[in-house]
Computed example of a mutant assay.
Amino acid sequence: MSAFKIADRPIGRDHPPFVIAEMSGNHNQSLERALEIVDAAAATGAHALKLQTYTPDTMTLDLDEGEFHIDDPASLWSGTSLYKLYEQAHTPWEWHAPIFERARKHGMLCFSTPFDETAVDFLEGLGVPAYKIASFENTDLPLIRRVAATGKPLIISSGMATVAELDEAVRAARAAGCEQIVLLKCTSSYPASPENSNVNTIAHMRELFDCEVGLSDHTMGVGAAVAAVALGASLIEKHFTLRRADGGVDSAFSLEPAEMKTLVVETERAWQSLGRVTYGPTRQEHASSVFRRSLYIVRDVEAGETLNAENVRAIRPGHGLSPKYLNVVLGTKVRQSLKRGTPLSWEALK
């Protein structure tokens, strides 16, 4: 699949990885903090800021019992209800416009993850350049069709989806008119461990679905993202906060500004390092050939004298014959007197 653009930013393996800073609920219900996050994300060099667009009522029911109560002791959100979690985490819709405007002032793209059709309609009014489908929504084919019908690039996180489910999602998007698709390898645990990231899937996803691929990363640090780029990821998404110590629903698995800056720099370096399959010296390496070993006269010899292990050796620099010829020249006589430190050449031999 050929590369495409999100707004003016090219997405593809021939371009540096596109890095998205995910704000999610890290604004902690403060617009001022949300705008600080935009400023900080722009300063890291991240290429886009992403929000999530929903309300508690578009996500679930206001119940705190049974399956609506989170009681998994391993969950970051254990002890609350789904409704209260989404109440705490959602970004008020009236904040979207000022957040988008702040991002534009920094020259940074801004878009969102819609969770139902009303969110798509709202975001269309804000002129978003792309959409993201969250990992838990990738089986919501009506939502995917609605987003795809906008004709804008669509990013879909894999999460727990099987190959069959991803195939259904991609087919639904393409049938609705969307060809500019990025599939993100994503492990839907918070935080995710490196061992559960399985970034080798990225290359397989590209081949299987013939689309751009990337990583939605919930691990700590930047190692998984760098590995993903080495395996062909053209897009990296990471949750972002000002300070994990400030708390919040997603802070535990979010990067701080210095870490996000490192992510941006190191993923681009990883991309730059891929290059092509090549052997032999590069143009930059030619000057370093002097540091190879070569055959040198290491003790003065007179004309007609025989070379031996006492008067010729393989040493640095590399101006003489290759060391592979040592056994050839040993026992050979020289044409003229040679001083210690003379590089040995075929012309010097009888």
Rank of each mutant, 00 (worst) to 15 (best):
S2Y: 08
S2Q: 02
I6Q: 10
P10Y: 01
I11G: 08
G12A: 01
P16K: 09
F18E: 10
E22M: 12
H27I: 07
Q29E: 11
L35R: 06
E36K: 15
E36Y: 08
E36F: 10
V38H: 05
D39K: 01
A40R: 11
A40M: 07
A41Q: 06
A42M: 10
A42R: 05
T44K: 12
T44N: 11
H47C: 03
H47S: 13
Q52T: 07
T58R: 15
T60Y: 05
D64P: 06
D64I: 11
G66Q: 01
G66W: 04
F68D: 09
F68I: 00
H69A: 08
D72C: 00
P73K: 04
P73F: 06
W77H: 12
G79K: 06
G79M: 04
G79P: 11
Y86G: 13
T91K: 09
P92K: 12
W95N: 10
F100K: 11
R102W: 14
G107R: 01
C110A: 15
D116W: 09
F122I: 04
L123E: 10
V128F: 06
P129F: 12
A130Y: 07
K132A: 00
S135Y: 06
F136S: 05
D140V: 06
L141N: 02
P142V: 00
I144C: 01
R146V: 02
A149P: 05
S157P: 14
M160Q: 08
A161I: 06
A161N: 02
V163L: 00
V163E: 12
E165V: 12
D167K: 04
A173I: 03
A173Q: 02
R174P: 04
Q180E: 13
K185Y: 09
K185P: 03
K185L: 09
C186F: 14
C186P: 09
T187E: 11
S188C: 15
S189L: 12
P191G: 09
S193V: 10
S193Q: 12
S197N: 15
N198K: 01
T201D: 12
H204Y: 08
E207Q: 14
D210G: 11
V213R: 07
M220E: 11
G221T: 08
G221N: 08
G221I: 12
A228K: 01
T241I: 05
G247L: 07
G248C: 02
G248N: 05
E256F: 03
E256H: 07
M260R: 01
K261M: 14
V264F: 03
T267I: 10
T267S: 03
A270Q: 06
V277E: 06
R283T: 10
Q284C: 00
R292K: 15
R293E: 14
L295T: 13
V301E: 00
E302L: 02
G304M: 00
E305L: 01
E305C: 04
T306E: 15
E310V: 08
I315T: 14
H319D: 13
H319Y: 14
S322P: 13
P323N: 03
K324Q: 13
V329E: 00
K339C: 07
T342L: 07
A348N: 15
